[in-house]
Computed example of a mutant assay.
Amino acid sequence: MTLHADATAVLTGWTPPDAEQAALREHYLRHLADHPDGMWRSSRPEHITASALVVDAGRERVLLTLHRLVGTWLQLGGHCEPGDTTLAGAALREATEESGLAELKIDPEPLQLSRHLLEAGGCKDAYHLDVQFLVTATAGTDYVVSEESHDLAWFGVDALPADLDATVAALVRRLG
């Protein structure tokens, strides 16, 4: 199965939690149906991305990155790469690369979808059709700051940073 086919299957099989998420899912599926290259950053004006809300084992804290280009606290994640075979695998790869954490466990069902315009970097003026997964740190929580970040930090789910992106706040609220 190709990454494109996996993304289509994941989104088709996912039950969105509300009407807004259902509309986004339909948009993503139309994008994939219309764009054989829709998984790659070269697809414009939109492309699928994969991200991870990393939580500790008790789901009391979330690991966020102070993104170097965007300058705000975000979940970990990014573009799909040619070696990725599943959308969840791409999110897990990104979480591992950006945090240095080992033994991460991913829930294969999306937690949330987020369509957002990029205003910086190589994809400026393109939309990310982000599929956001829940990832649990099952071992130590000592992270390593990657070159993509100014900083990484654990935040209590009830003590998030003031300059948090609104879609990330909504993502954390979905932890229930």
Results as ranks from 00 to 15, higher is better:
Asp125Leu: 12
Asp125His: 14
Asp125Trp: 14
Ala126Asn: 15
Ala126Gly: 03
Ala126Arg: 15
Tyr127Lys: 13
Tyr127Met: 12
Tyr127Arg: 14
Tyr127Glu: 14
His128Tyr: 14
His128Lys: 14
His128Glu: 15
His128Phe: 13
His128Ala: 15
Leu129Ser: 09
Leu129Asp: 09
Leu129Gln: 08
Leu129Asn: 08
Leu129Met: 10
Asp130Thr: 15
Asp130Gly: 11
Asp130Phe: 07
Val131Met: 09
Val131Trp: 04
Val131Cys: 10
Val131Gln: 11
Gln132Met: 14
Gln132Trp: 03
Gln132Glu: 12
Gln132Tyr: 06
Gln132Asn: 13
Gln132Asp: 09
Phe133Lys: 00
Phe133Ser: 07
Leu134Ser: 01
Leu134Cys: 01
Leu134Gly: 03
Val135Gln: 01
Val135Trp: 04
Val135Ala: 03
Val135Phe: 04
Thr136Arg: 07
Thr136Glu: 11
Ala137Phe: 00
Ala137Pro: 02
Ala137Glu: 00
Thr138Ala: 10
Thr138Arg: 08
Gly140Leu: 00
Gly140Ala: 14
Gly140Cys: 06
Thr141Met: 06
Thr141Gln: 11
Thr141Tyr: 00
Thr141Phe: 00
Thr141Val: 08
Asp142Thr: 13
Asp142Gly: 10
Tyr143Ser: 11
Tyr143Asn: 04
Tyr143Lys: 05
Val144Leu: 10
Val144Arg: 15
Val145Gly: 09
Val145Pro: 07
Val145Gln: 05
Val145Leu: 06
Ser146Ala: 10
Glu147Leu: 01
Glu147Ile: 02
Glu147Tyr: 01
Glu147Lys: 10
Glu147Arg: 09
Glu148Ser: 13
Ser149Ala: 15
Ser149Glu: 10
His150Glu: 13
His150Asp: 14
Asp151Ile: 06
Asp151Gly: 02
Asp151Tyr: 06
Asp151Arg: 13
Asp151Lys: 08
Asp151Phe: 03
Leu152His: 02
Leu152Gln: 01
Ala153His: 11
Ala153Met: 10
Trp154Ser: 05
Trp154Met: 02
Phe155Trp: 10
Phe155His: 09
Gly156Asp: 13
Gly156Ala: 12
Gly156Glu: 07
Gly156Met: 04
Val157Asn: 02
Val157Ser: 02
Val157Trp: 12
Val157Phe: 03
Asp158Cys: 04
Asp158Met: 09
Asp158Glu: 13
Asp158Leu: 11
Ala159Cys: 03
Ala159Tyr: 09
Ala159His: 10
Leu160Cys: 03
Leu160Arg: 07
Leu160Glu: 06
Leu160Met: 07
Leu160Asn: 09
